[in-house]
Write a protein that binds this DNA or RNA. Sequence first.
DNA 1: GGGATCAGC
DNA 2: CGCTGATCCCA
Length: 672
Amino acid sequence: MPEFLPMSHELATIKLDCDTGVSIDELVPRESDPAALAAYYREFGFTRWYDETESVADNDAGNVQALPQVDTDYECVLDQKIFDQWVQRLRQSGSFAVDTETTSIDYMLAELVGISLCIEVGKACYIPLCHSYEDAPDQLDKAAVLAALKPILEDPEIGKIGQNIKYDAHIFIGEGIRMRGIAHDTMLASYVLNSTASRHNMDALARYYLDRETIHYEDIAGKGVKQKTFDQIDLEQASDYAAEDADVTLQLHRVLSAGLQQDEKLHQVYRDIEMPLVDVLLEIEQNGVLIDRAMLEMQGKEIAQQLSRIEQEIYQLSGEVFNLSSPKQIQSILYEKLELPVLRKTPKGQPSTAEDVLEELAAEYEIPALILEQRSLNKLMSTYIERLPQEINARTGRVHTSYQQAVASTGRLSSTSPNLQNIPVRTAEGRRIREAFVAPAGCKILALDYSQIELRIMAHLSADNSLLNAFAKGLDVHRATAAEVFGASLEQVSAEQRRAAKAINFGLIYGMSAFGLGKQLSIGRNEAQQYVDTYFERYPGVKRYMEETKQRARDQGYVETVFGRRLYLPDINARNANVRQYAERTAINAPMQGSAADIIKRAMITVHHWLGDNRDACKMIMQVHDELVFEVAESEVERCCDSIAELMTGAADLSVELEVDAGIGRNWNEAH
DNA sequence: GGGATCAGC
DNA sequence: CGCTGATCCCA
């Protein structure tokens, strides 16, 4: 086992120097010599477990190089001459760190307040533009400053370095500046080096990688309802804070780059996937999605009627009115008042009222079925039908989500405010929400999704003959699995058998346990174990792959995707069996989920480049893990469909072909 | 702020 | 059984 695996909580008490007998101080180079840094990272890597609350000093010295503290020279630019000098230096620089200060964390609502810049570590400036508190000093003219910076920010030859630079690029778009040369993002570098870190915000990175405590926004702006927006903050405080951000970003960039240089595969993931994706996500987010407000209103009225009918019925049957949104009250009605049998308990020991439990109770009793229906309609109502219209931007008339690029440990994106990656599709009523995701007049929605991408990746990684064969022949893979496991011919497979086989296939991707499979299929543990055993007999390559993956995880402390993205598993050698098995399931799942994420990200980048200057006719508007959604001019839609499908299938060269299903419609539902 | 629940892949 | 985010209740 390598010495510097990320430590699980269980192992956290073992000091790093216990293993080597060498004092930590001797291990950490104190100079900023790149060669020393390089040697250091080669030896120790960035494998420490870190989060916001942890500082290098608090822990056991850490394996991270703290750059020597440099005397800082931060200036607030209020003078035209000084500004001109900065512009001059920026023009001549190969790259620089940039950070914007604004009035909101919402990129579509935020107003630019000031800009900070740093070309050389320790020397940074803040250019205030719109501080508007009482007696605020005169500031440089915003339009003039932006006009001077625009050619520099738009010059692809001058590299821009930022912390979550997509946000700053959004802000500049709001000012009519399309940032080019987005070269580095310290948040993404940190994410590629260790995706399991809980957060990749600047404060945490500075604390961990620079052993430096930065000024916290709350300290200068206050917190809660009284929190000031940045334009209300005193220039002196604002300058220290903002200039520091740019300076720290540049310092972080140096340290993190040195780390990435030490592993060619990780460097490629960063350079060839994550960085180019920034521009793609920027575009998708700016594009936004058109939502048919009237459609949702209509659906809302229908559902409100159904809801009140169901609620009345539930109150009648249970003999009292109570809050159906409170699991606690439902629990007391069902299990105490009406004395229904308790089939399962929540982790905290409360009788569960979860979907599958109520599903089972619904066979015998009336109320559970009604509660399920109420819950599902209520969810549609509060999360989608009522919420989505509120998310429509007043200026663009569209919904602009945020894709989080440094959140999911496996390499997936996530989507927030609103989450467009969990729009209902499973049930008929839910699916109707997608009818409200529409194309404007003259356009169509084009949706393309990878077919069985994770299973194909499993076939590729495991090189199992039967599985490779099933895909090569273009078989219905769940049916093929059923035929193998139940010893039937393809034609003989029943619907029930196919359903079970599908659950097995999903189980495999999730690092299946007999317990979990049994629960999914509502069968006993032993019967489920039988299925698993038979499966592994028929697919010995898969069995071997699973064992090898777990062993590799134990040996090296991480697993990786087809493209070399890494996921650390600090708990893989834990002594607690539950903790360890959980890590083992993640070890199985992460390479498949993560490789799929890599592949669609690569596809997004090539599609983005293919679109070139044709982005008015064909706009990428959503990504849902294995699906890309576009808004396309009617005249172009067939051509785009074929070309994009080809680019998507070509995004990886696996030992099974990738397949893409495509659909075209007036709305997202029709496009499926 | 944490837990329960449920929407997606 | 893997990975997420939003909403709600309740302390």
